[in-house]
């Protein structure tokens, strides 16, 4: 009798944990983990552009959808809707890195200035005529 009760309790527990996991997984906010996640690649804006210059398909395979940490000099800061967009200079080419910041970074971004050297962490989404990043945060 006791073992039957235990079995029912265990099955109920499995369903409960499974249900909660599925719910959390489905309702989780995209990139809620960015702040605490380790970057897969840490590199300079120049090197990132250079990799895309060399072979876009290969660079896409490597960086696209990865969390990367990129350092560079600010070429432009502007506000789009409720968040900021920071552009970093590339190397000798005219391409740069365009980083769409998370809205939570707004107060930090307003203290930044053009030409300042910074490090950003975010998700690389690929390359148009610049390397694109979304969900970016500033690294201290």
């Amino acid at each position: 009798m006791a073992s039957r009760k235990l079995k029912i309790t265990l099955i109920a527990l499995v369903f409960l944990v499974g249900g909660i996991t599925i719910y959390l997984l489905y309702n989780s906010k995209p990139y809620a983990h960015i702040r605490r996640a380790e970057a897969t690649y840490i590199l300079s804006a120049g090197n990132l552009i250079a990799d895309y210059d060399k072979d876009e398909a290969l660079a896409n395979k490597k960086y696209s959808e990865s969390i990367i940490e990129v350092s560079g000099r600010i070429s432009e800061i502007k506000k789009v809707m409720e968040y900021h967009v920071i552009s970093l200079y590339g190397n000798e080419t005219e391409s740069g890195i365009i980083c769409h910041m998370l809205p939570e970074e707004n107060s930090k971004v307003t203290r930044l200035q053009k030409e300042q050297q910074i490090t950003l962490k975010g998700v690389c989404t690929g390359y148009l005529i610049d390397v694109m990043m979304i969900k970016c945060i500033l690294k201290d």
Binding site: Y26, S28, K29, P30, G126
Partner: peptide, 9 residues
């Protein structure tokens, strides 16, 4: 990949 959604999944 630059499309952003309300939910990660």
């Amino acid at each position: 990949r630059s499309f952003t959604f309300k939910k990660a999944l």
